[in-house]
Design a protein around this nucleic acid. Structure first.
Lengths: 201, 201
DNA sequence: GGCCCGCCATGACATTTGTCCTGGCCGCGC
DNA sequence: GCGCGGCCAGGACAAATGTCATGGCGGGCC
């Protein structure tokens, strides 16, 4: 019997996946969570064989949770299941010790198969996405540049960003300028979009 | 037997919902589409009793498709199923003649029940969302203001927007200023976010 | 030790952006 | 007819933004 933990914030998606995987003879969903903070506690409590994690979660990113799991529950395989096939996400997932990376497009049939293959020791990764991740190269942004960009997503002014990150407004502008340069864009919003597109945030 | 059409772009979600609804004794999924353009042709071909439509679709919005269906296939009830419970979406869905409006949070069990209730002639709407839609009031933005805002989403400059909408840069700035004023925001990006938040785009 | 980075900050500067005002052109309602 | 509002454009001005140069601080690496 394969014991599964399922982390997904959209209630309907979570319920549908749980029902679906529950239909498989050898699968058992031992935990369902909708918040990233709950993943580790629930996993420690139920000790699943595999965890199916969404990335964009309230509370704590599925990628961070994956790293937690590798450290605290090494016997549990981690599968990332996400809407967006961003190269940087795949890279971070691999660095966090994930065994599989699936996108929410593609047929549901893949899902159970992927879980089984991961449990058998295989790595499951979309080949096209793997190629994209390699060709895209690593994240060129420094920590601070990421912080500042992340604080700029919702159209905040320099002053707002400076307050959020506890920096001088002038420094913020310098980091923004650097990020704009590195992403090859023309203004902060384009830089934010480019960084998100690549999974660099 | 209730004949259903299902429109949803995420393959995994679409497959999961189809399997799930297919489990109901009296449901039959007669068509599945992942593109908004395909909704009307498929519906005319299969003549379903109800259509379950996502809003954010490639090709054509689920809201526009809903209007198409009301006009060309009045016997078909329309249920909108969307990730975002934006007040403006609900309003537009009602104006397009939809009988139900569900958000993708909330349990899957609601889904089949909602379809049955809609087929029985009821309207199915999240009460909290209905209240929000009423309190938010109608869309205050004019057509041109929406156009210009929509063209500004990805951090385009005034010149870019002007080229896209075939307007003078000065006019674009005026429309942006008007949109910023009407949304009560401080710059174009905040205006874009506010407008999207309310489903005004 | 010297060198390279990342980090933080400031000043100066050109460009872009947001605001306000003026004006003209239409269509609609009273 | 008159007023109102949406549509289009331009000018003038203040504020925000993006760039560049300069400087100091600290930690790695050879």
């Amino acid at each position: 019997m394969i014991r599964l933990l399922l982390a997904e914030d959209q209630g309907m998606m979570r319920g549908a996946l749980a029902l679906l995987l529950g239909l498989e003879e050898d699968f058992e969903i031992v935990a369902q969570v909708g918040d990233g903070e709950e993943i580790l506690p629930k996993a420690l409590e139920t000790e699943p064989d595999a965890a199916l994690l969404d990335i964009e979660l309230p509370g704590r990113s599925g990628l961070d949770a994956a790293a937690d799991l590798r450290e605290r529950l090494p016997g549990c395989r981690v599968l990332i299941l996400t809407t967006f096939g961003r190269p940087g996400y795949l890279r971070r997932a691999m660095e966090a010790g994930a065994s599989g990376f699936l996108v929410k497009d593609g047929p549901v049939e893949e899902l159970a198969a992927a879980v089984r293959r991961v449990l058998a020791g295989e790595r499951v990764i979309d080949p096209a996405l793997a190629a994209a991740a390699l060709s895209a190269g690593p994240n060129p942004l420094t920590q601070r540049e990421r912080d500042v960009l992340a604080a700029a997503v919702d159209g905040a002014t320099v002053a707002d960003i400076a307050a959020r990150v506890h920096l001088s407004p002038a420094t913020v502008r310098n980091y923004l300028s650097a990020a704009i340069g590195k992403t090859g864009t023309r203004n902060r919003m384009e830089a934010v979009r480019a960084a998100r597109q690549n999974g660099w945030l």
